[in-house]
Design a binder for these strands. Sequence first.
DNA 1: CGTCGCCTTGAGAGTAGTCAAAACGGGTGG
DNA 2: CCACCCGTTTTGACTACTCTCAAGGCGACG
Lengths: 221, 221
Amino acid sequence: MRDLAVCASLPMPEIDVLEQYASSVELPANGELARTGQPCRHAYSVTSGMLRLVRTLPDARRQVVAFALPGHFVGLSESTLHRHSIEAVVPSRVCAFELDGIRDLRERFPGFEHTLLDRACRDLDDAHDAMLLLARLSPLERLASFLLRLRKQMKVRDDDPRIALPMGRGDIADHLGLTVETVSRSFTRLREQGVIALPDPQHVEILDHDALSELASALRY
Amino acid sequence: MRDLAVCASLPMPEIDVLEQYASSVELPANGELARTGQPCRHAYSVTSGMLRLVRTLPDARRQVVAFALPGHFVGLSESTLHRHSIEAVVPSRVCAFELDGIRDLRERFPGFEHTLLDRACRDLDDAHDAMLLLARLSPLERLASFLLRLRKQMKVRDDDPRIALPMGRGDIADHLGLTVETVSRSFTRLREQGVIALPDPQHVEILDHDALSELASALRY
DNA sequence: CGTCGCCTTGAGAGTAGTCAAAACGGGTGG
DNA sequence: CCACCCGTTTTGACTACTCTCAAGGCGACG
């Protein structure tokens, strides 16, 4: 509990308070943590695994608004209803906080609010990056940007060229505003150009980091 | 000063404190308030007019991340460098706050932080809406969504069918991830279908609100 | 060994982009 | 008052790219 990133700003006694409102949740792959339209009851901190935030249109068009890795905090919103579903990409563990508790702590402990605001600002910057990506980048550039961002978020050693892709091609497509086919073709093209290797569909190995960065020029991570 | 939306949560004495850090800035049309890459020194509250937040790629591809109307608060970021330019769409007046002052007040007055967090959450929700729009909507749907959102933000009377478009077609295109030509053609198509009227390029009149809402189905404002 | 789901590859169609030119409007100077 | 110029918007013809539809490969699991 005290290892959670959101708690970094809290002194011990406050962590105990927060703990009263917290519960650990185990999710299988594709398990649903929240559904669009439901009232917001909890906010979540990812402990292990990976979540996806998904907005779906009536006609099944889908947008994966973000992937949440361990350390990420999700679920705060101005709205009282969930604006997107929250689902597990792979078996995951999250820490669920009752919003009442969050509110309570926000009021009683300014440093906590401060931490949340910082994170919100970062998420906002990320969302703006994503907007540029979706609006103006080619499929190849989108994929390159995505790979580099994922690599950075995974916090792998700088000299490790391997990236694990826990999510399927469909999730990547719906995150990058493309179709599965185009994502697949883009992977293939990067491989053919010698920029990456694909030992298997869930693993990428960066062969030419400069070329990849060049493609992702728009969004430097 | 005390009319500014960000001050709503502040009691009188605090407003006086904030005022010490504040200065009013007048901007001509297309005037620059901040430039990408510059260190962040101020945050801004829009008093009158309209701002645009712009990210530009080296090869001149542009993305208007957001338009800011009176009441909007812009400039908070995790980063110490501006991630986008801030420019006036039309002659505008803004209230500039030194970030030091903001930081100061954030620490000393929790309610202020709370207000900022709420606004950040709303901005984040908006950005997520924009992502879905950019990733999955057709040009016509994008334009319909844009018009309805703008109308809502302008806070016009519900029965007033007129919408003013202070920004040019280029800005709209770069906001919706399209080209000027496609934006123009989309306007024309909406007009031909009797959904809107275009008394002049800067003014839209909604003739068939239901049809427009239907097109914007994805994003209800 | 066969089935199922996911990923990849292929061929064709449709949509938005590109390039080019014409309309429109506002402002300036004759 | 009119002529001209410039920037913006609109329209048109064509191209190219991504999506769609369809089939084939591959691995996991029973």
